[in-house]
């Protein structure tokens, strides 16, 4: 199994606070990996490092063997230029907890912004592709709406379409349903299920344990900035090997799962 996304000894320190420490993980092409753990455990930081939005203080994240945020020069790794970093980020899709659609653009404008401005796709092609994606996430009728006119679930689906328009190699989801009203969680999870079924490589930070169980090939449990346990999804979720993971799951599962 060749890894598409690799975390090698990734650590992150802000001032005197260590947020991530010695994280090693591999995600194969087409694999869906869910990251779970209590809040403040470093899940989102790990995701942002993976997506190239932050550069880890130690260690390296690589996508298809290419270190993210670094270039090889004469056999050594040096920080990549801004443009090179931007090019890398362009192939890594991120879906945020609070959607982060651009409020001053319509849904369609949001989706074609990246392809048009970053990838230089001709306007007509970008629009056609955007409409195709809107169909896939069930928002065909909403292309000329502004984000504030949509429900949370619709906004999140539009945000997923915006990321997909860049034809990313990996999709990162940062608690994509935590900001949603309960009745809208399902529609977003369904879109993600479809994506997984299409073979998209996904790293998902989530609190939806039931969903993780259905969709994930593997689960990574984090606490205190470290990976405590990782392995086959069903195994980790139903027969956790560590006390901390077991305790976390029992706390989470006391509440009904979506």
């Amino acid at each position: 199994m060749s890894a598409l996304l690799t975390f090698e000894d990734v650590g992150m320190t802000y001032g005197h606070t260590t947020v991530l420490e010695g994280v090693n993980a591999e995600i194969a092409a087409g694999e869906v990996v869910c990251v779970i753990g209590p809040s403040g455990s470093g899940k989102s930081t790990l995701l942002r490092c993976g997506a190239g939005l932050e550069t880890p203080s130690t260690g390296v994240v690589s996508v298809a063997g290419e270190p993210v945020g670094w270039t090889r020069r004469r056999g050594r790794l040096v920080p990549a230029r801004n443009r090179a970093v931007a090019r890398q980020r362009a192939q890594l899709g991120v879906v945020f907890q609070h959607f982060e659609l651009f409020p001053h653009m319509t849904v369609l404008e949001n989706i074609i912004e990246g392809p048009r401005g970053v990838l230089d796709v001709p306007a007509e092609d970008a629009r056609q592709r955007a409409r195709e994606l809107l169909g896939r996430v069930g928002l065909t009728a909403y292309e000329s709406r502004y984000p504030a006119q949509l429900s949370g679930g619709q906004q999140q689906r539009a945000a997923i379409a915006r990321s997909l328009a860049m034809r990313p190699a990996v999709m990162f989801f940062d608690e994509p349903t935590s900001a949603l009203d309960p009745e809208m969680v399902g529609e977003v999870l369904q879109v993600m299920r479809d994506l997984a079924a299409d073979g998209m490589t996904m790293l998902v930070v989530t609190h939806e344990m039931g969903f993780a169980g259905q969709i994930a090939d593997r689960v990574i449990f984090m606490d205190g900035g470290r990976v405590i346990e990782q392995g086959d999804a069903t195994a980790v979720l139903t027969r956790p090997q560590t006390a901390r993971c077991a305790e976390f799951l029992s706390r989470i599962l006391e509440r009904p799962v979506a």
Partner: peptide, 26 residues
């Protein structure tokens, strides 16, 4: 919000483009 900057960066926008297209209009 910082999420807007992150979203623009995650689409591969350079800082100049991010300012012009996403941040300054807001």
């Amino acid at each position: 919000p910082s999420g807007q900057w992150q979203a623009a960066r995650s689409l591969g926008m350079t800082e100049g483009r991010l300012l012009r297209r996403v941040v300054l209009p807001q």
